[in-house]
Design a protein around this nucleic acid. Structure first.
Lengths: 168, 168
DNA sequence: CACCGCATGTAACGTGTTACATGATTCA
DNA sequence: TGAATCATGTAACACGTTACATGCGGTG
């Protein structure tokens, strides 16, 4: 879903071909959230099929531009709230499952992932740069999210300790 | 990916049929992260095909249990760190795209989603309950994450104001 | 008996990933 | 000219969602 609408947004700035769009995409988030070139082409094909984009000018090159429908789809999606069901976090799932699985040391898993997250935060903060607004905000978002994960892992530990204490 | 390993984890507790597994799944996260029944069956089929689970006892009923390979796959996955590329957040994508799209009032989109997130947090905190440990931790994770999103949206506003100020 | 909920699937489709195929351009 | 890189795709597959199709059990 995010690739489809990312392409619509890129096309809202200016028309382009598949390869050019992939390059513009990478300028913003490529290093952190890469997209496969092949998917750009297949997605463009579906968007054209659904009437959200069309080929501009002569059809020599596959130069796409937004249609009215595409513009409407984009502006609608931008303000559509995100449902809780979409907030599935793989790390949260891992830890919750680890806590419920017999033969697995839940506390060890929590501490293991905590270390990994701390390292990831350090790696990210080192790449921070205020050159590009989008890039800076993207790194901000990731760091804030990982900070929240850290706090959550601590709370997991606390609840585990509390449960262990109340059980004796 | 999370359904596949969730099923492995549920089977690590005890064997079960597709329907029973779906019910056990729902006990934990069903209200927030629902899973489709059909997907449970197709996923079980793939897991059996890949040798991670097998039918237990006589094949009258489709009662599945973990194989050794399945147990190894599960315990490996539980400690595998989550890559940054997996931390794609649809709301972040929306806002970043809104800020870069001509004809869209980025500040308005930020404030719009901020309202939606605040409402969602209130809805979640109302459902908080310490009855089930997994459920409580799940709600914790979501609230902490939404709090982080709120802080990020504020930072977006700040950076926008800063950019607007520096441009004049 | 007819109907309803339980239980087990299958079909169709959208999205995403990886890998491969192909023609054009450039450049050593 | 031969090799690398650009540019545009296609194929095969995994995962997820929605909807539909059965078969079976009890219950009015």
């Amino acid at each position: 879903m995010t690739v489809k609408h990312s392409l619509l947004a890129l096309l809202a700035e200016s028309p382009g071909t598949g390869y050019a769009l992939k390059q513009r995409y990478d300028e913003h988030t490529g290093a952190l959230w890469p997209v496969n070139v092949g998917q750009v082409y297949t997605t463009l094909g579906r968007l054209e099929r659904d009437g959200l984009i069309q080929r501009a000018g002569a059809d020599e090159a596959a130069l796409y531009e937004l249609t009215e429908g595409g513009r409407a789809e984009l502006s609608g999606w931008l303000v559509e709230p995100v449902a809780v069901a979409e907030l599935r976090d793989e790390l949260v799932v891992k830890v919750l499952l680890a806590l419920g699985t017999p033969g697995i040391d839940g506390l060890a898993v929590v501490q293991h992932h905590r270390r990994a997250v701390v390292e990831e935060v350090q790696r990210l903060t080192r790449t921070r740069s205020d050159a590009d607004l989008t890039w800076a905000l993207l790194v901000d978002a990731l760091v804030l999210r990982l900070d929240a994960v850290l706090r959550w892992l601590d709370r997991c530990e606390a609840r585990l300790a509390q449960k262990a204490g109340s059980r004796r």
